[in-house]
Every structure is written in structure tokens, then in C-alpha cells.
């Protein structure tokens, strides 16, 4: 880590300027970046720590929508009552990233921009229909989460662009989300497979909208539209769930690596998607009961 400069800008503009320097790397929680620096996978000349930018580590509610700062830690998400109640799937996904220690630092922004296909929070964010607020030399833009990752370690963020926040839309009535992942241990592993599901029911309990996203079964987290479509119009009965599983299995194109075989990942992606769908449905039903 020789010759690395450290900068913690106090404003977005300053950060954007700094990041246009060759060899500059953004740091939020640092739990991925510092590991990559340590093992020599990346050798930045300048580390731009975002955490002193006002609001970037905060969470706020605006007319039912949530704005989650890109550098808000997993622990901060877990401690946010209203967010946990509104989007339990996102919070549980964020809280699955690493240990308690990692939770104290790791952020949604870092989890997305590190662009690991196995990032836990990404399928949950995609399922929830979250968007990203991005600022760069050419101003601000807002895109869906699924538009960010393009492959392992690669994103659509341009040179100098900074992910500032995630926007979670105002949740429709009778909506629930859930995220499940499979790891061999109970903690501390990278997802072998992850699945996020968000469903909206009508008053009779029929599914009127659904988004299903799976992780670690392709170069990026996948939004599986066919899987969502399989649920819409159903009460998440066995037939619909079978179709959901088939759609997920069909969409999955995993690799075999040290964490799991392609065959295993495909099978388990379908299983987890079904289980997550049922949890999301139960939450949506409870949401209705309270409303």
C-alpha cells in the first residue's frame, strides 16, 4: 500500500473533482477496497473517502420514500426502525453482508459498486425497484439499480461519477419484500446464491406486481422478469411457484467455482426464490392487515 494518498472531501463537488484524478478510487465503508488493496488486486494512488460528505451516511424518509446514503453502514440500516418496517428484505440483505464488524462499515453503495455478482444487497434492491442517485462532472442522474453492474468488478459509472444515494419508492399497499441467501456456514461467507423478491397483493390477496432478482448465478445480479410474471395474477399457489422456480432456473447462467457448482447454484436459486416469495407474500399480507 505504498504511496497511497488519502482524501476525505467535505462536499460532493470536491469528491467529483478528486475522482477525476488517474488512479483514484472511491471508498465508502472500505470493507471491499481495503481487502483488494491488501491482497494487491488494486493499487490506487488516491483513496477518496466519501464519509465526510454531509448526508452520505444518513437515511431519511421523504413522503414515504426512503433516501439511503450510499455510505450508510449496514448497522445504521438495521437500527432504522421505519426502514426496517417498510423494506425488511433490503435491511436483512444489507445485514447479511459480513460480520458485526463488517456491518459497522459496509455500505449499500460499496456493495453495489464493488460489482460482485454475489453482493447480497443488490438482488433485494433490484426486487424493491430501488434507483441510484449519481453525481458526476456532467451533473446528476438517476437510474435503476439493475443498470449499474455490467460484470464482475465493472459498473456503468463514468470516470468521476459518485453514487450518492439509493431512492426506495413509496411502497404500495400490501407490499412485502424478502431476501434469502445460501452459504455453507451460518455467517461470514459470500453468497453461493441469493434471491430477492418483492410482491404486491390486492385486497383479495392476489398478486398484482412482483419483482424477482437473483444473485451469484450470472456475471451480475439478475432481474428475472419472467419469474415476477409467473407470480402476477396468482395467490402464490403451488403452480405459480413452480413457474417461478422454472423461470429462475432458466434465467440462471452460473459458473462453477470454489463456492459452488453451476448445477447446485441453479437448483438452489429456484428454491430460494420460492422461499423468499412466500416470505414476501406473508409480509405483504400482514402489511394489508395493518393498513
Amino acid at each position: 500500500m505504498s504511496g497511497v494518498e488519502y482524501l476525505s472531501p467535505g462536499s460532493v463537488a470536491e469528491a467529483v473533482r478528486a475522482l477525476q484524478v488517474d488512479g483514484a478510487r472511491v471508498m465508502a465503508g472500505g470493507t471491499d477496497l481495503l481487502v483488494q488493496m491488501r491482497i494487491g488486486r488494486t493499487k490506487p494512488k488516491l483513496v477518496v473517502d466519501l464519509k465526510r460528505i454531509p448526508g452520505i451516511a444518513g437515511i431519511r424518509e421523504e413522503d414515504g420514500a426512503f433516501i439511503i446514503g450510499a455510505a450508510a453502514s449496514g448497522a445504521a440500516l438495521g437500527e432504522h426502525e421505519a426502514l426496517r418496517k417498510a423494506w425488511p428484505g433490503i435491511v436483512e440483505a444489507a445485514n447479511l453482508i459480513g460480520s458485526t464488524q463488517i456491518q459497522g462499515r459496509a455500505s449499500l453503495g460499496g456493495n453495489l459498486c464493488n460489482a460482485s455478482p454475489a453482493a447480497d444487497s443488490v438482488p433485494a434492491l433490484i426486487a424493491a425497484g430501488a434507483t441510484c442517485v449519481i453525481v458526476g462532472p456532467n451533473g446528476e442522474r438517476e437510474v435503476p439499480v439493475e443498470a449499474i453492474q455490467v460484470g464482475p468488478g465493472k459498473t456503468t459509472l463514468a470516470n468521476g461519477e459518485v453514487l450518492l444515494a439509493f431512492r426506495l419508492p413509496k411502497r404500495a399497499a400490501h407490499t412485502g419484500d424478502a431476501y434469502l441467501r445460501l452459504i455453507p456456514r451460518t455467517e461470514m461467507d459470500i453468497a453461493v446464491v441469493g434471491a430477492g423478491v418483492c410482491v404486491t397483493l390486492d385486497a383479495s390477496g392476489k398478486c398484482i406486481a412482483a419483482r424477482v432478482s437473483v444473485g451469484a448465478v450470472a456475471p451480475t445480479a439478475l432481474l428475472v422478469e419472467a419469474a415476477g410474471a409467473a407470480l402476477v395474477g396468482s395467490s402464490l399457489d403451488d403452480a405459480a411457484l413452480t413457474n417461478l422456480e422454472a423461470a429462475v432456473a432458466a434465467a440462471a447462467r452460473p459458473i462453477s467455482d470454489k463456492r459452488g457448482t453451476a448445477e447446485y447454484r441453479t437448483k438452489v436459486a429456484a428454491v430460494l426464490a420460492r422461499r423468499a416469495a412466500l416470505i414476501a407474500r406473508d409480509r405483504a399480507q400482514k402489511d394489508g392487515a395493518k393498513a
Binding site: R185, E187, M188, D189, I190
Partner: peptide
């Protein structure tokens, strides 16, 4: 690495 050489953790 300890991440991928999976020794039991307390919750296991």
C-alpha cells in the same frame, strides 16, 4: 483466506 476456507464460526 478465512473467507473461503470455511472454519466453524460461533453461530455454526
Amino acid at each position: 483466506s478465512f473467507l473461503d476456507y470455511r472454519m466453524p464460526v460461533a453461530s455454526d
